[in-house]
C-alpha cells in the first residue's frame, strides 16, 4: 500500500520595496531550489504556492516534510526578485493549513 504523503505548510513574510507578483515569487523559489540542490533535489521538494497576499506581504507555500530544510535554505538565499531587493522570512512551519493560520497568521 502506498504511504500517505506528508506535507508541511510554510508561512512566509515578504519584505520588499514593491509588491511581488505571485508567479515571480514561486519562480524565484523554484530557481533557488534548482540552483542549490539541482534537478534531482528539486524533484523531491513538491513545492506549490497555496496563498499569496501582496497587500498583507505574506504567502503560504507547501512542500514535502522531508524537504523543509532544503526549502528554508533556498528561501533564505533569495535577495532579489526581478532586480528588486527582497527578503523572505519564514514565520512558521506547520503540518496543516488550519494550525498554520491559527498560530502564525491570525
Amino acid at each position: 500500500m502506498l504511504q500517505r504523503i506528508r506535507r508541511r505548510y510554510l508561512a512566509l513574510k515578504i519584505v520588499s520595496e514593491q509588491p511581488i507578483k505571485k508567479s515571480d515569487l514561486l519562480n524565484s523559489v523554484w530557481n533557488k531550489v534548482h540552483q542549490l540542490y539541482g534537478e534531482y533535489g528539486a524533484s523531491q521538494v513538491s513545492l506549490s504556492l497555496i496563498e499569496h497576499n501582496p497587500e498583507g506581504n505574506y504567502a503560504i507555500i507547501r512542500c514535502s516534510h522531508k524537504a523543509v530544510e532544503m526549502v528554508r535554505a533556498s528561501i533564505a538565499t533569495i535577495t532579489k526578485i526581478n532586480e528588486k531587493t527582497v527578503t523572505i522570512h519564514i514565520v512558521g512551519v506547520s503540518g496543516t493549513l488550519k494550525s498554520l493560520r491559527k498560530k502564525f497568521l491570525s
Binding site: 519584505v15 542549490l36 530544510e69 532544503m70 528554508r72 535554505a73 528561501i75 533564505a76 538565499t77 535577495t79 531587493t85 527582497v86 527578503t87 522570512h89 519564514i90
Partner: peptide, 17 residues
C-alpha cells in the same frame, strides 16, 4: 543592511549546505 538579516532558524537551515 537589514535585507541580509535572516531568522535564527533560517541561518541554521543555511548551514545544511
Amino acid at each position: 543592511t537589514e535585507y541580509l538579516l535572516r531568522t535564527p532558524q533560517d541561518n541554521a537551515a543555511l548551514t545544511t549546505l
